[in-house]
Write a protein that binds this DNA or RNA. Structure first.
Lengths: 199, 199
DNA sequence: CCCATTAACCGAACAGTGTTAGGTTAACTC
DNA sequence: GAGTTAACCTAACACTGTTCGGTTAATGGG
């Protein structure tokens, strides 16, 4: 195929299809050839619009992070932390398959830094020292990312035989997958509430 | 090379060299061919001792998790949670490069489950409901894994120009890498203390 | 002691990965 | 209308995990 009359590819379209594949097939399910195929194109053509796969993943991550809202600090820093964490988690849990990538690479992402900056500033304004603000922000991220990885409740088997006998206290762990979604959110809320209350 | 007089390979040796490569070159730095080369062997030979690379990584992870101590619940559940979390984090932070793998796959690992079972039982014995115990254990894992991923302080650039101007509150973020180790630990301790206190 | 079996390794290959170089043709600009 | 650029292509490279079939040494039985 020569140059088409209307371009088949655009960074936006590539990002959106890439994210759709990740949501559907997981992070390992995304390959440049598969992505190209779903865009009706050959793999090499992608590299006219995207520098590298890693960069593409970073771009996809950035668009997800751009929906995080850290502007809820008007009614006190405790409430602000909670709102910020909820917004963060909501963004991540709507695309859980990309979280391992987020957690893997360095945090030096544009979108991530901008939000961290605001969070840090709000905490300092509330009277925390700079160092304390850094640690509190880090702690909040621990809970957000830890819960978003969700290798916990959703990582359990639904076969009772995997637990009975061997793990006496986990004899109902096979029920976890059924309530994973709810339990994940409740665990997150519990951890978040305890953390903020304990500060 | 035919069959050698004394075997070159053993599951133990394979695991230990694999872990050394991961520690040195990162998770992506481990390939079966490189692993084989460092063992003085061809890649195909590994498959007589290891079923698959994923299984090998699980085995390596298991040996790391086996050093986690969850037996500190004799002086109260709060102290027990803290000791358990510290032990977990210590095990993970001594091999940070394998944490993404740990966080990626399901939690259904033998070693992981056994410890979770004990933790869960100790919390129920302390008077928490089963559901609460599950959520508290999950929250503790959030903090442990979140801090072990440590894509925070160690993920910052050491070039001041990356921050000044653009992120007013992060104008000293370039100093973070120098104190990353200490700051990571302090952030973990802060989050852990706040979480346990807030329960 | 010899023979059959098994265990340990190797070479070569397969299908898949990200990525690049060089070619072809349509659309745009002067 | 000619020249340039942009968008796609084919083909290839150097990898990856894994498997198949072969080769040889150690081991156990009669």
């Amino acid at each position: 195929m020569p140059r088409p009359s209307t371009p088949l590819l655009s960074p936006d379209r590539i990002r959106s299809v890439a994210l759709a594949i990740i949501d559907r097939d997981g992070l390992d399910g995304l390959s440049m050839r598969k992505l190209a195929a779903e865009l009706g194109v050959q793999a090499a053509s992608l590299y006219g619009h995207v520098r590298t796969k890693d960069q593409l993943l970073n771009d996809v991550a950035a668009t997800i992070l751009s929906s995080v809202d850290v502007s809820g600090f008007s009614s006190g820093w405790r409430e602000g932390l909670i709102r910020c964490a909820r917004s963060y988690r909501e963004a991540l849990s709507s695309h859980p398959n990309i979280v391992p990538f987020l957690a893997y690479g360095p945090a030096g992402r544009e979108e991530s830094l901008r939000r961290l900056d605001i969070l840090h500033g709000a905490l300092v304004d509330a009277g925390w020292s700079r160092r304390e603000a850094t640690m509190i922000a880090a702690g909040l991220m621990y809970i957000v990312f830890g819960s978003a990885l969700s290798s916990f409740s959703s990582g359990f088997s639904s076969d009772p035989a995997d637990y009975t006998g061997r793990y006496p206290h986990l004899d109902r762990a096979h029920l976890l997958p059924g309530v994973a979604r709810e339990l994940d959110r409740d665990s997150f809320e519990l951890a978040l509430a305890a953390f903020v209350r304990g500060l």
